[in-house]
Design a protein around this nucleic acid. Structure first.
Lengths: 334, 334
DNA sequence: CTGTTAGCGCATTCAA
DNA sequence: TTGAATGCGCTAACAG
């Protein structure tokens, strides 16, 4: 067991050449290598089952050909979809994409961001809930680009931190306005504590106030179905119910729907429900969920393109902020 | 820009000690270091913003403190849940967990498995659709343990490949038998082509034949909602409909339900539907989906424990096969 | 207690 | 066209 892996040295010995020649050949540097030597070395490598050691390679070249996708919670379907978009771009350029869970907590966000300083990845695309622009300074200074996915336009000062965002506030605003247009005025909002949902609540409040309604915010610690479920129960316990509930993300909206269904509340007859994100489950629940699409796959693609531009040096200088569109998707739940 | 990162050498110089002393101190080897020196070095490190280079560390120690979770498709909610289980165990022991998408295709499965040979991870937990036990030989021989998550008991010969599985065939069998018990005999099965769903179809066929029914298998290339949706449409085009549809995973089942709903077919009145996996969406669709739970979170935990035992050398020798239980979950869809 | 020495496996310059 | 030499940043003997 524990056979040592073959190194270039082993290959060189077997092929009767020097290690550096092996390196040349196996690096694919076409240059000036006689077919005969080439063949001999390749054969030796194959015979020994030679596989390059990436740590050594990385140490030497300072490149890992790996991109990290850092997200709060991979079990939220929003993120896997994002990752797929990123992957489609990065892999086409020869980069592997790995995903890690930060749980949206400071320690872990910092921990994984540190990977960049440790030379483990060549670039980062991530959703960070606690880190601020300045937290990225050292990473960026060390030459590892970062693209941050945000929910509002953010300034990055003179830092080379790229932002890509969908304007969540505007999305919420539009959604709530649409609900108002349908005759709702008593609209409650259900959101997670912390995280990025503050701006969505803001948009909600603005639209509702504008229409003459009174904001009614119910928060829960969890951003998922459970949180939505609990929040909805809180709402249902009151004497007077809202005519509509807007959830700050689809997972919570689905939880809300479940609670309503359990309480035999008709959707959308008694209470309409809307969400945010347009995860794939949104159109599968019944009634299908009205929501604000963020087009996460496209966001991932665009983010990856921005990152690649930095990595390839096609873009330098201070960070950019790219806005991506949202779309109101009206389905049966409203 | 591109400030070079501080190395132990830089720290040593600033602290007026040798590089090896810095290594000792920063590696946390408590041993015999005077508090004074310790402080001086720590201060210097802090001042320079020293961060260890993991590539160098890995090259030297042959350990990365990283575990890879390799799955076919991270957008299938089954896998993120699995990953969470793995994470809970590995991180408690100081290992980071990363996730990668193999798409269940041979090239990519092999590509990522190769990571192990490249010294990028210390262990692998994965779901592999195309690789066979012998494909893991070289990786295992090189000292990187692999735990494979399977859908049936598999022999691993004398290879140190650990398996953990839920008996999918038995799960399907039980589910179909339960459907038969409810009076269904014309039961169609909807499954993806390739992948692991063959054994589920087997279990279905066995149970149905036993009851005197005739297997009716509808395949699609995709394992997700889309595939299920298409397959259901194929079924609905026929003159005679089944009274129940069993889908080889929940995603497909949800697609089936969507197709039925669109065709105004009552669930479960006209056609009952059942799935496999018990992803979290299963209890959120309407009617809630009857399914076979695989307890992916627990499977992840157990798999990680097995992996850690190997990594820590607590277990050696040929591979094991651990069976995990499934549970029939009856909900509104049947 | 701390410094010296020796690589880990590879890419790369410089000679030959 | 190939080889010898160097060092990436770090850990781990081994001396002192």
């Amino acid at each position: 067991m524990k056979a040592k892996r073959a190194t270039q040295n082993d290959v060189a010995q077997l092929a009767g050449v020097s290690q550096s020649t092996v390196s040349m050949v196996l690096s694919g540097e076409n240059s000036a290598i006689p077919a005969e030597t080439f063949e001999r070395i390749s054969a030796a490598a194959r015979k020994l089952g030679y596989v390059p050691n990436r740590s050594a390679q990385a140490l030497r070249t300072n490149r890992t050909m790996t991109i990290a996708c850092m997200v709060p919670d991979i079990t939220n379907p929003f993120y896997p979809a994002l990752m797929r978009g990123i992957q489609s771009v990065c892999e086409a350029q020869g980069y592997d994409v790995i995903a890690v869970n930060t749980d949206g907590v400071a320690d872990r966000e910092r921990h994984f961001l540190n990977w960049s300083l440790q030379g483990r990845v060549d670039g980062v695309i991530g959703v960070f809930w606690t880190l601020r622009a300045t937290d990225f300074r050292s990473v960026l200074d060390s030459g590892v680009p970062v693209v941050r996915i945000e929910s509002a336009r953010k300034g990055t000062g003179d830092i080379a931190l790229d932002n890509i965002f969908v304007d969540s506030r505007a999305g919420s605003f539009a959604m709530v306005r649409a609900m108002v247009a349908k005759g709702h005025l008593r609209i409650a909002v259900v959101a997670g504590r912390g995280g990025p949902q503050g701006v969505r609540v803001e948009g909600y409040s603005a639209a509702l106030t504008e229409a003459g309604g009174v904001p009614d915010v119910v928060l829960d610690d969890q951003f998922n179905e459970e949180g939505g479920f609990r929040a909805a129960q809180v709402i249902l316990e009151r004497k007077i119910h809202p005519t509509a509930i807007f959830a700050a993300n689809d997972l919570m909206a689905i939880g809300v729907m479940q609670a309503l269904r359990m309480a035999s509340v008709n959707i959308p007859g008694d209470i309409a429900v809307a969400g945010f994100d347009d995860i794939s489950a949104a159109r599968l629940v019944s009634p299908a969920l009205t929501t604000v699409a963020q087009h996460q796959h496209e966001v991932g693609i665009r983010a990856a393109e921005i990152l690649m531009d930095r990595i390839k040096g096609r873009v330098t200088g201070r960070g950019t902020a790219v806005e991506m569109p949202f779309t109101l998707i009206e389905r049966g739940s409203t």
